[in-house]
Computed example of a mutant assay.
Amino acid sequence: MKVRKVLAIICYTVCLAAYAAAGYVSYISYCGEISYKLGFLIFLPIWIVTYWFSTFFSQLIEKKGNDGSTWLIKKAPRKVLSIISNLLSFALLAFWGYVYVMEYLLSTR
């Protein structure tokens, strides 16, 4: 059980680090240091890594017993961590949606 907690912490830390990397790539794309196309091509695999490690975290904190499922961490911290991850993911995807609309759909007029 302790190993699962340690692995869950590692997975969530990797997830947050990948979000930071994806945010940095988005930022340097926005500042013009790299093109939006290159930024998106770098961002997408990083975002996939965040999705996978978020899934690993969710699976590691759930311990299934014979009497049903139990959780390794309490409900409130679990919800907070999930909300943080989901908000970061949504914000990054919303940014790239905004870039797509502004750069590619409106530039064809």
Rank of each mutant, 00 (worst) to 15 (best):
A91C: 13
S69V: 14
I28R: 12
L38T: 15
E103R: 13
G32V: 06
I84N: 06
V99R: 00
L88F: 09
K63I: 13
M102N: 14
E103S: 13
A20S: 13
W96C: 00
E33D: 07
S69Q: 08
I83G: 06
S26L: 11
I61H: 01
I10V: 11
L93F: 15
I84Y: 10
G32Y: 06
G97Y: 01
L60W: 01
R109P: 06
M102V: 09
I73R: 03
R109Q: 07
I48S: 10
K37M: 09
P77S: 03
A17Q: 00
L93I: 10
T50H: 04
I83T: 15
I42A: 12
Y27M: 06
K74L: 11
Y104R: 04
S35I: 01
S89E: 05
I9M: 08
S58E: 13
Y27R: 05
L93H: 14
V101W: 11
P77Q: 05
I61N: 03
L72W: 04
A22T: 12
F90R: 08
C31L: 15
P77V: 02
P77C: 05
S58N: 11
S69T: 14
I46N: 01
V14C: 12
I9L: 11
T55H: 15
S54A: 12
A8E: 02
S26A: 12
V80L: 15
I48G: 06
S54P: 01
A94Q: 08
L105F: 07
K2L: 09
S107V: 07
I46H: 01
L41C: 14
K79E: 09
Q59A: 13
L38E: 11
A8K: 02
L92F: 06
A76C: 06
G32K: 05
K37N: 13
I9Y: 01
V3T: 13
L88E: 03
F90L: 15
V101I: 10
Q59M: 13
I46K: 02
G97F: 03
I46E: 04
Y98K: 11
I48E: 05
S69H: 09
I46D: 00
I46P: 00
E62A: 12
I28N: 03
A94M: 12
K2M: 09
L88M: 13
T70Y: 09
G32A: 01
Y98E: 05
T108S: 14
I73C: 02
V49M: 02
A91E: 10
G39P: 04
L92E: 07
W47K: 01
Y100G: 02
S107T: 12
I61D: 01
A76R: 12
F95D: 03
P45A: 04
L41E: 07
I73S: 01
K75N: 14
S26W: 07
R109C: 05
F40W: 08
K5N: 13
T70P: 04
A76H: 07
K2W: 02
V99Q: 01
A20F: 10
S107R: 12
L41P: 01
T108R: 15
F53I: 03
